[in-house]
Amino acid sequence: MPDYMLDVNGKRHFVEEVEEETPLLWVLRDALGLVGTKYGCGIAACGACTMHIDGIAARSCSFPVSAVGDQKIMTIEGLAAEGGALHPLQKAWIEKDVAQCGYCQAGQIMSAAALLAENPDPSDEEIDNALEGNYCRCGTYNRIRAAVRVAANTYNKRGGIE
């Protein structure tokens, strides 16, 4: 079985002997101990496992480790700036008290982060489109929309991530 060198959250990780088709999700969780990325369905249907590959939101449960190459992976653990300053979305999520069980929220935030990086001033419809693939079983959608709007405002004022 091959070994991989992965660039995750700005750090390089050596992963030994994993099958090529192993979904990135399980490499992150079981091999690297980055458990913020969640398992919900394994078939790219729920969004719980959303992380970024070269800045694009993707479903890690359906992304084989062999396809990563030297692309940069970012998970919820790497979203805050170095030194721990939270991303405007993380702050907005705390302030708007979005979470119920919280299980889906890392995926929601990662989808929203990819959206804001592309489109710092999304309309409600654009928010819905970007988050369409992220289920929230607890039904926090009203607050998710509100938190993305709050974050977008901060984002715009500051002209990007702090």
């Binding site: 458990v35 913020g36 969640k38 919820i76 979203l79 008290d97 979470a99 919280g102 299980y103 929220q105």
Partner: peptide, 23 residues
């Protein structure tokens, strides 16, 4: 009053809180 959840910070930073996260 509106009080935000005590685990909010841990949740939005991906800390191991859930059953599935235990090792």
């Amino acid at each position: 009053k509106r009080i935000t959840g005590v685990d909010n910070y841990a949740l939005v930073t991906g800390q191991p809180l859930f059953g599935i996260d235990q090792t």
